[in-house]
């Protein structure tokens, strides 16, 4: 191994080890605590974070209302309800239009499996009335052999866009004991 890369590897290890354990550097000599100025600035930054968050919340609510008025707003959510299934690609199209395509890296694929979260993949404006949705996916199980063919599938469905914000949930599930993973469509609305 060349000296430089060896040195870099060791350096990476020092940082990784100390960060991962959190205690390695806590021993004698004990780390000096930060100065009071640093703590004061930390407080200021925590307050600033709250202001920026509030700004983002207000601005995104306005943005949503201006770009996607609620009578036409249609949100598409994607979820994976199959343990170990990593979704790689996904596309969705309405009424035969151009498909919107999405690819997911490992962190994104894993996030689907952690706490039954849903990813809001898109928002579109659709007139109230009947619409056709088509979605396709490419996925693979985490423990699949490297040469295993990817799992693919698609869904076509008709849904009624009502006069209020419409939420469409596309779920990757297994509909039967031996069934292949497939997509299902769930339409939900707020009780408010």
């Amino acid at each position: 191994m060349p000296l430089k890369s060896c040195r870099k590897a060791v350096r990476a290890l020092i940082v990784a080890a100390s960060c991962a354990t959190g205690t390695l550097w806590a021993a004698a000599p004990v780390q000096p605590p930060p100065e009071s100025g640093a703590l004061k600035l930390d407080q200021t930054i925590q307050d600033l974070k709250e202001e920026v968050l509030q700004f983002n919340s207000d601005a995104s609510a306005l943005e949503q209302n201006s770009l996607y008025p609620s009578y036409s707003r249609t949100s598409v959510f994607l979820g994976v309800r199959l343990s170990g299934l990593l979704i790689k690609e996904f596309s969705v199209t309405f009424d035969g239009g151009a498909p919107e395509k999405f690819t997911f890296d490992e962190i994104e694929s894993l996030a689907f499996l952690q706490n039954k979260g849903l990813r809001r993949v898109m928002r579109v404006n659709l007139e109230p009335g009947q619409h056709k949705i088509r979605a396709e996916f490419i996925a693979q199980f985490a423990d699949a052999k490297p040469d295993a063919l990817p799992i693919t599938g698609n869904l076509e469905a008709i849904f009624d866009k009502n006069y209020n914000n419409t939420d469409l949930g596309l779920m990757l599930v297994r509909t039967g004991f031996r069934a292949e993973p497939s997509l299902t469509l769930e339409q939900t609305r707020s009780a408010r």
Partner: peptide, 22 residues
């Protein structure tokens, strides 16, 4: 093409709210 069932109703901010799941 399959047809979606009638929309399920969720209480905003509740466990079933898709925005919370997002």
């Amino acid at each position: 093409a399959s047809t979606a069932h009638a929309a399920d109703v969720y209480v905003p901010g509740s466990k079933n709210d898709p925005n919370l799941r997002a």
